[in-house]
């Protein structure tokens, strides 16, 4: 029997140069950026990759050389990373996200977001009426740390003073204040989203707690005839912040929903599919919290008149409505963010 030239040996001899070529390209890519390759090399890459894949398929069926199989497996793997790894510039990704993916993701999650808005609203109403009926409820609903001296026993003047702090802190303190607010709120937003993984229950609890506190707060101020002023104080950043919380809550509910009702898909693939959309909403919320932090940290300390606060808050609300409901640009090829498969 002719043992010297096996089919697999012959096969290896024919294909080896192209494997080596691919290996060299991969090594170059690993060390540098895609720009370190010449245009010719870049166009060779997909061809060589497909060549390596087909070599792997053939080798699996004709060769028993383990060294060869392991090599091809690893070569195909490494080439696969290069071809299918993410490789877009930061600005292209960020631009596509702001222009299309974020509003698209929000619209896709319309139902869970509505649910989260509804839940917050009901909780706020409940908090309001509970505190109106019996001021004792305020102590139950409002953690001490959050109340910061704003209690049913405070006088109207004291409460009013908090709304129009007459001694705005120095400029640098403001930035620390704004960044603290941003970090705190964004943390809550992300938690709201991520805890959706526990079937959405903690998300619901967080939203309800938030709503109850809001309602209790309103009841406190309305009791002293300061409802309109509190509205102005809240809306200037609240139109952005509360919306962001609602969106993050909706994203959390979407996660929980995918786990609870995966439909025809397996739980894990339903989760992965929804998760990517929900994650985009959560990321967008971080940006919204950043804007809200700036509004709360700076604008609220500078703008003290009632109508100006309402105007800014209203404009922000209108802006977000326009942004989320705008007709979306069609899915771009190169710049568009991923597809909705």
């Amino acid at each position: 029997m002719d043992s010297a030239v096996l089919k697999s040996t012959q096969f290896r001899r024919e294909r080896e140069p192209s494997w080596r070529e691919l290996e060299d390209l991969l090594e170059k890519l690993r060390r540098g950026s895609p720009r370190s390759l010449t245009p010719q090399e870049l166009t060779r890459l997909p061809t060589l990759y497909r060549g390596a894949l087909s070599s792997l398929s053939v080798a699996r069926s004709i060769s028993l050389d383990q060294g060869l199989l392991a090599y091809l497996e690893s070569l195909a793997n490494r080439a696969y990373f290069q071809i299918y790894g993410p490789r877009r510039g930061f600005f292209s990704v960020a631009g596509a996200f702001l222009r299309r993916s974020f509003p698209a993701a929000v619209r896709q999650l319309g139902k869970p977001i509505l649910l989260s808005i509804l839940l917050s609203a009901i909780a706020a109403l409940a908090g309001y009426f509970l505190c109106i009926s019996d001021a004792e409820w305020y102590y139950t609903l409002m953690p001490e740390g959050m109340a910061q001296g704003r209690l049913p026993t405070s006088t109207a003047a004291e409460l009013r003073e908090i709304l129009y702090e007459t001694k705005p802190p120095a400029g640098d303190m403001l930035s620390a204040f704004a960044s603290f607010l941003f970090v705190h709120n964004a943390g809550i937003g992300i938690t709201c989203f991520a805890l959706g993984f526990a079937f959405g229950l903690p998300t619901a609890l967080l939203l309800i707690q938030n709503g109850l506190m809001l309602g209790a707060f309103f009841a406190l101020y309305a009791g002293h005839g300061l409802g309109i002023e509190l509205g102005a104080w809240l809306i200037i950043h609240g139109s952005t912040e509360l919306l962001a919380i609602a969106l993050a809550g909706g994203a959390g509910f979407a996660l929980g929903g995918a786990l609870l009702f995966p439909g025809a898909k397996s739980r894990l693939s339903a989760l992965a599919e929804t998760g990517r959309t929900a994650g985009q909403v959560a990321l967008g919320c971080v940006l919204m919290f950043c804007i809200a932090g700036l509004l709360e940290g700076y604008a609220r300390q500078w703008v003290l008149t009632l109508w100006a606060r309402y105007t800014i808050g209203g404009l922000m609300l209108a802006f977000w409505a326009l942004y989320f409901l705008q007709p979306l640009p069609p899915q771009g090829g190169a710049t568009g963010s991923g597809d909705d498969d």
């Binding site: 990373f81 990704v93 991520a194 959560a282």
Partner: peptide, 29 residues
């Protein structure tokens, strides 16, 4: 180590964002 798409598709930016946002609850909380 390397992150890949579990089913072999291209690794999308949104997947990267999500897997890292969840870390907030997994580790930092």
């Amino acid at each position: 180590l390397r992150v890949i798409d579990r089913h072999g598709g291209p690794l999308k930016p949104e997947a990267i964002v999500v897997r890292n946002l969840m870390r907030e609850v997994e580790v930092f909380m």
